[in-house]
Amino acid sequence: EPELVFKVRVRTKDGRELEIEVSAEDLEKLLEALPDIEEVEIEEVEP
């Protein structure tokens, strides 16, 4: 069974934007590691 992958769009407080694809596990780590995120948009990517 393929692992869930999420497309994550992040905007930081200083206005930088970042778009990455991460696994569910990595997404959890990412959110814990970035306390200064202003906006996060997450969508599931079809395998």
Rank of each mutant, 00 (worst) to 15 (best):
E1C: 14
E1D: 12
E1G: 13
E1T: 11
P2Q: 08
P2S: 06
P2H: 08
E3G: 06
E3F: 04
E3Q: 06
E3K: 13
E3Y: 05
L4N: 05
F6H: 15
F6E: 13
F6P: 05
F6T: 14
K7Q: 06
K7H: 12
V8I: 06
V8W: 00
V8T: 01
V8K: 00
V8A: 02
V10T: 01
V10I: 13
V10P: 00
R11M: 03
R11N: 01
R11S: 03
R11D: 00
R11W: 02
R11C: 06
R11F: 02
T12F: 15
T12N: 03
T12A: 04
K13R: 10
D14Q: 03
D14G: 06
D14I: 01
G15N: 02
G15C: 03
R16F: 08
R16A: 06
R16I: 09
R16Y: 08
E17D: 06
L18E: 03
E19F: 14
I20K: 02
I20L: 11
I20R: 02
I20Y: 13
E21N: 10
E21Y: 15
E21K: 09
E21F: 15
S23H: 08
S23T: 11
S23P: 04
S23F: 07
A24P: 06
E25L: 10
E25C: 10
E25Q: 11
D26R: 05
D26T: 05
L27R: 01
E28K: 13
E28M: 14
E28Q: 13
K29N: 06
K29S: 05
L30M: 07
L30D: 00
L30N: 00
L30G: 01
L30C: 07
L30P: 00
L31R: 04
L31Q: 02
E32Q: 12
E32M: 12
E32C: 15
E32A: 13
E32F: 08
A33P: 01
A33E: 08
A33W: 12
P35K: 15
P35H: 12
P35N: 14
D36Q: 05
D36P: 04
D36K: 03
I37W: 13
I37C: 15
E38Q: 10
E39N: 09
E39M: 14
E39W: 15
E39H: 13
V40Y: 12
V40F: 12
V40E: 02
E41A: 07
I42P: 02
I42N: 02
I42G: 02
I42S: 02
I42K: 03
E43T: 13
E43S: 11
E44Q: 11
E44H: 09
E44P: 12
V45Q: 06
V45P: 06
V45D: 04
E46D: 11
E46F: 13
P47K: 11
P47L: 11
P47F: 07
P47Q: 09
P47T: 11
